[in-house]
C-alpha cells in the first residue's frame, strides 16, 4: 500500500522492522512453549505417582520466563548491524532467561526421582519432551553469545535449535496432552499399541531429522536456500534428514489413524482412566453441556499423588452422593 516506514530512500529504516518484529516474535515463542511446559508439569506427577516438586518455584518460573523473554529480542539481530551498546545487554538477558527455564527441568527431574514411573503413551511423550526441550535450550546458549552467533546465525544450527525447542516445548507435549485428555473429550480410549508405535516412529524420526542439522550449521550451511553445491560435502546429512522427515511423517500418519479409529470405535473410557486428581476428571467422559451439576469444592492441593489421605476436590453436597478422590499409592 505504498507506505515508506522501511524504505531508506524515503527516510525509512529496515532495522525498525526487525526491532518491531522481534519484540513481538521472541516473547511469542516463549509463550508458545509455556503451555506445553505446563502440560508436562501436569501430566508428569500423575505418571510418577508423586507430587510435583517445588510447585511454587515452577509457577513463578513461568512468570520469570515471560518477563525475561520480553527483554531478549535483540539476539535475533546480532548480525543485522545494530549498535554495540545494545548487543551486550541482549546477550546478558538471553543467557539469564535460561535460569527460570532450568528451574522447571530440575523440578521435573526431582518429581521423577523415587517415583513409581508408569510408562503409558502420555508419559513416553512427556519424557521425550523433557529431553528434547533440554537439548533445545542448551543449544540456544552458544547463540546467545554474540561472537559465536555471528557464525551460527542464519545457518542450519539455528533451524535445529528452534525445532528442538518447539518440538520439546509444544509438539511432543501436545501429543502427550492429546493422549492424556482424549478419553475425557471423546469418552473413548486412544489405542495404546498404535500410540506407542506413533511415539517410537516420531521420536526416532525427530532425532534423525534434526541432529544432522547441527552438524550442517557448524559447517556453514546457510538456511533458506533451495540448493547447495555438491562439492561442499553437505549431501549426506541432508539425505539423512530427509529420511528422518519421512519417519516423522509415518509416525503422524499412525497418529491420525489412531485418532479416527479410536474416536469411532475405541473402547469406552471411564471418567478417570489415569487416576488423576484435577477437577476435569470429576466430570464424566465426555462432560455434559454445563460440565458439572454443581460447582466442585476444592479442599486440597491438586498434585498430592501417593500421599495417603490427600484429597483434591469434592463434588456434590458434603456427605451426599458424589465422587470423592481417594489417595492413590
Amino acid at each position: 500500500m505504498g507506505m515508506r516506514f522501511f524504505d531508506p530512500d524515503k527516510g525509512g529504516n529496515v532495522i525498525l522492522y526487525q526491532h518491531l518484529f522481534w519484540f513481538y516474535s521472541h516473547p511469542a515463542v516463549y509463550i508458545f512453549v509455556l503451555p506445553g511446559l505446563g502440560v508436562i508439569s501436569e501430566v508428569l506427577p500423575g505418571f510418577c505417582r508423586k507430587p510435583l516438586f517445588g510447585y511454587r518455584a515452577v509457577a513463578l518460573s513461568s512468570l520469570g520466563i515471560a518477563a525475561g523473554g520480553a527483554l531478549v529480542w535483540g539476539h535475533h539481530m546480532f548480525a543485522a548491524g545494530i549498535e554495540e551498546w545494545l548487543m551486550v545487554p541482549m546477550m546478558v538477558t538471553t543467557l539469564l532467561v535460561a535460569v527460570p527455564t532450568g528451574v522447571k527441568v530440575f523440578s521435573w527431574l526431582a518429581t521423577m526421582w523415587m517415583g513409581k514411573i508408569q510408562l503409558e503413551t502420555p508419559m513416553l511423550f512427556v519424557l521425550t519432551s523433557i529431553i528434547v526441550f533440554l537439548i533445545g535450550g542448551l543449544t540456544g546458549v552458544p547463540q546467545g553469545i554474540v561472537p559465536v552467533d555471528l557464525y551460527l546465525t542464519d545457518t542450519y544450527w539455528i533451524v535445529a535449535h528452534f525445532h528442538f525447542t518447539l518440538f520439546g516445548g509444544f509438539v511432543f507435549p501436545a501429543m502427550a496432552a492429546i493422549y492424556f485428555w482424549f478419553p475425557k473429550v471423546t469418552g473413548r480410549l486412544l489405542g495404546e499399541g498404535l500410540g506407542k508405535l506413533h511415539w517410537a516412529a516420531m521420536s526416532a524420526g525427530f532425532f534423525i531429522l534434526y541432529v544432522p542439522m547441527f552438524w550442517l550449521g557448524l559447517h556453514g550451511m546457510r538456511r533458506r536456500i533451495a540448493d547447495y553445491d555438491p562439492g561442499l560435502g553437505l549431501q549426506l546429512p541432508n539425505l539423512v534428514s530427509a529420511i528422518g522427515a519421512f519417519l516423522v511423517a509415518l509416525g503422524m500418519l499412525i497418529f491420525f489413524i489412531n485418532l479416527v479409529r479410536s474416536a469411532t470405535r475405541g473402547a469406552p473410557a471411564p471418567a478417570n482412566p489415569w487416576r488423576s486428581r484435577t477437577l476435569e476428571w470429576l466430570a464424566s467422559s465426555p462432560p455434559p453441556e454445563d460440565n458439572f451439576p454443581t460447582a466442585p469444592r476444592v479442599v486440597g492441593p491438586p498434585y498430592g499423588y501417593g500421599i495417603p489421605g490427600s484429597v483434591h476436590a469434592l463434588i456434590g453436597t458434603s456427605g451426599g452422593s458424589g465422587k470423592m478422590e481417594k489417595a492413590d499409592p
Binding site: 513481538y24 509455556l34 503451555p35 502440560v39 491438586p302
Partner: peptide, 29 residues
C-alpha cells in the same frame, strides 16, 4: 493458593501475555 493446576495458569497467563505484542506488531508491519 497453589490449589490450581499448573497448566491452567500457564495457558491463561501465557495466552494473554502473548497477545499484547501482536496488537503492537500489526499496524506498522
Amino acid at each position: 493458593p497453589g490449589d490450581e493446576p499448573v497448566p491452567h495458569a500457564h495457558l491463561c497467563l501465557g495466552s494473554y501475555g502473548h497477545r499484547l505484542p501482536p496488537a503492537y506488531l500489526h499496524p506498522v508491519h
